[in-house]
Amino acid sequence: MFKKDETVSFLKDLLLINSPSGYTKQAVQFLRETIEGFGYDTITTPKGNLIVHVDGKDQSQTRALSGHVDTLGLMVRSINSDGTLMLTKLGGPITQTLDGEYCDIITRDDKVYTGTILSKSPSNHVFKDAAKKDREIDNLIVKIDECVKSKEDVQKLGIQNGDFVAYDPKVVITDSGFVKSRFLDDKASVAILVSVLKALKEEGIVPATNLKFIFTTYEEVGHGASWIPEDITEMLAVDMGCIGLDLDCTEFDVSICAKDSSGPYDRDLTTTLINHAKDQKLNYAVDIYPMYASDATAALRGGANIKAALIGPGVANSHGMERTHMDALENTFKLITAYIQN
């Protein structure tokens, strides 16, 4: 049974933990403590991915379900002479949406300073091009909330090139059931997978095969699940469903991806998922994502000999200010539970 309040409460807590690609230890620790609290054992790979094994009825087969806890983010590229910071991207954020966002600058000794991401022309009263200036990454800076006037002042704080910069997710849950936040890609799917793990324990459900839940930490930069355990022969990546252009998916649906930029997903497995969605009378859509790759993509490119498929809750405005609805979370949960029991 899907528990909306518990799922959304966990999702909100996870969204508020900074976890740009490469800085995910706190989020993984939160996941580990939550999942072990349900009674599962976990392992953490050298790379930082968290894996949970669940015994199934058929011990000869192992299927994987993946979701990624890492998010888009930024890094300090350099420090300007006036004490502002230049930036480089982690993953592919839409940088035009970052102008004016609050952020945390995380030093190598884990001190955290706050700041604001701004255009280099941030004021209409001063700069003629304030409204028209391009908001690409090289035209954005961070102003630190400290009394700094020079590069040396910033360095004395312990801030240096290569420090992580995490921007505010701005989480809002509306009474009408919408979840608005950055990083629903892919923390919404992680929350669903955690809810599935909890339901298996609470309801005494034994899946049809062995399962490995894999929570990855470098998906946004392309190699999250490039290694997976060798006993896995089938993998279901759970990641955000795309919305827009000629796509059928909405914020209320579970999306089933037939093909993304890496090519088609396994036809038989994708068909099975479509049939489960029909049988469960779910709101679902089958779509093609032309500018997308997943943890299953990384596994296949890493040489995994697996069948692979991709599903996820419909999420609007990806890599910007994202939004989904609780209905999409529930439809995705129900499709996963149908899949693992058959």
Rank of each mutant, 00 (worst) to 15 (best):
M291P: 00
Y289L: 10
L310D: 00
L300P: 00
A316T: 11
T270I: 10
D279Q: 12
D253E: 13
N275Y: 05
G263E: 02
Y289F: 15
E251C: 07
T272M: 11
D260P: 07
Q280P: 01
F252G: 02
G244P: 05
T297W: 09
T297F: 11
T297D: 14
T250P: 05
P313D: 08
C257I: 14
A277I: 08
D266S: 09
Y284I: 13
T270S: 14
A316W: 10
T272I: 00
G303F: 12
D279C: 02
K281D: 13
L247S: 03
G302A: 11
T271E: 15
C249G: 02
K281A: 09
V286L: 14
D266W: 02
L273N: 01
A308S: 15
M291C: 05
A277W: 06
L273W: 01
I306C: 10
H276I: 13
A316L: 15
T272K: 12
D239H: 00
G241S: 06
L300W: 01
L245S: 11
I243P: 04
I288T: 15
K307L: 13
D279H: 09
D248M: 08
N275I: 08
P313M: 12
L273E: 06
Q280Y: 09
G241H: 04
Y292Q: 03
C242Q: 07
K259R: 13
T270P: 07
F252Q: 10
G244Y: 03
A285D: 07
T271P: 03
